[in-house]
């Protein structure tokens, strides 16, 4: 290469997440430039125009027509939205993934299906490439009662479980987390850091890491969790769950996340994506700002 080329940096990403049920946004709110806030595609186009770097759709439709529903969503999104988008929820096979990727989605996200059958990650990566495969992990801090022998075992393995609930943990404390099936009601007993490592070896190209403890709290992302997984794997980690203030986004990115996922902080109109980007830029974090 001729000498003297200069370049600029790689940006951290801000990713709005839309929960979709039967083709409608679950928590839709009014924005002035949107006619139908319940339409995921209109909301997605709004976020694109505000500077969203990517979008994630989590489909929670529980019907037999699910595959058609999410393929239709991917097709409509690809018609109107010109940033990369990921579709998750109910992807259980290469055929499921093929349907949404052919329709225009850039990545698929898998959660429970991969916990139940980890080979799925390798199958998806072989066909579509690791860059298309996002592993979503729903993580919860371990809460064993004091005196439980598993506490000592976890200590011996280098973790610092919190006996009486995660909120008592001092800031920055190392702890350990368990992976739950999507929705967060069923524990699998799997250690989150170990599962993330295994998933990347099997072919996951990105980890979407949600703290069940923080999700819906507005208390900020689980920073020790974000840091522990970001350090453990060689692929980008998307921090999720708990954003309530713009500074929370900066904290998660400083903790090692490559991207932050946000839902209610944007959906309820408290902040715009553009405001989030401005805040991060002012905080010295490299982000794409629209001029």
């Amino acid at each position: 290469m001729p000498k003297g080329y200069r370049g600029r940096m790689h940006f951290k990403r801000v990713i709005p997440c839309l929960d979709v049920d039967a083709g409608r946004v679950v928590k839709g709110v009014e924005f002035v430039d949107i006619r139908d806030a319940g339409d995921p595609v209109e909301l997605a186009a709004h976020y694109d125009s505000e500077g969203a770097d990517e979008l994630v759709f989590l489909d929670i439709t529980a019907t037999h027509e699910k595959r058609d529903t999410i393929a239709k969503l991917a097709r409509r999104t690809a018609d109107e939205v010109f940033v990369p988008f990921t579709i998750g929820g109910g992807i259980r096979s290469v055929a499921d993934a093929q349907a949404v990727l052919d329709a225009g989605a850039d990545k698929v996200s898998v959660n429970s299906a991969a916990l139940q059958r980890p080979e799925l990650l390798g199958e998806l990566a072989d066909v579509f490439g690791a860059q298309c495969v996002v592993l979503a992990i729903d993580a919860k801090a371990r809460r064993w009662p004091a005196g439980d022998p598993r506490l000592q075992r976890a200590y011996n393995h280098g973790g610092t479980p919190v006996p009486n609930g995660h909120d008592d943990a001092p800031a920055g404390a190392a702890t350990s987390w368990e992976a739950y099936l999507a929705g967060g009601r069923t524990s699998t007993g799997r250690d989150v850091v170990a599962w993330a490592r295994e998933a990347v070896e099997r072919g996951a190209g990105e980890i979407l890491l949600t703290s069940m403890d923080r999700d819906g709290t507005s208390d900020g992302y689980d920073l020790p969790l974000t840091a522990a997984v970001s350090e453990a794997v060689s692929v980008p980690v998307i921090a999720s769950g708990g954003a309530g203030e713009l500074e929370h986004l900066a904290e998660a990115l400083r903790a090692g996340a490559d991207a932050v996922l946000c839902a209610s902080i944007f959906h309820y109109g408290r902040f715009s994506v553009a405001e989030a980007k401005s805040h991060l830029a002012a905080a010295g974090i490299p982000v794409r700002v629209i001029e």
Binding site: G7, P236, D258
Partner: peptide, 12 residues
Amino acid sequence: LKLPHIGWNEMT
């Protein structure tokens, strides 16, 4: 840095 390179980069 991680490969594949995935993400937004400014063009000079």
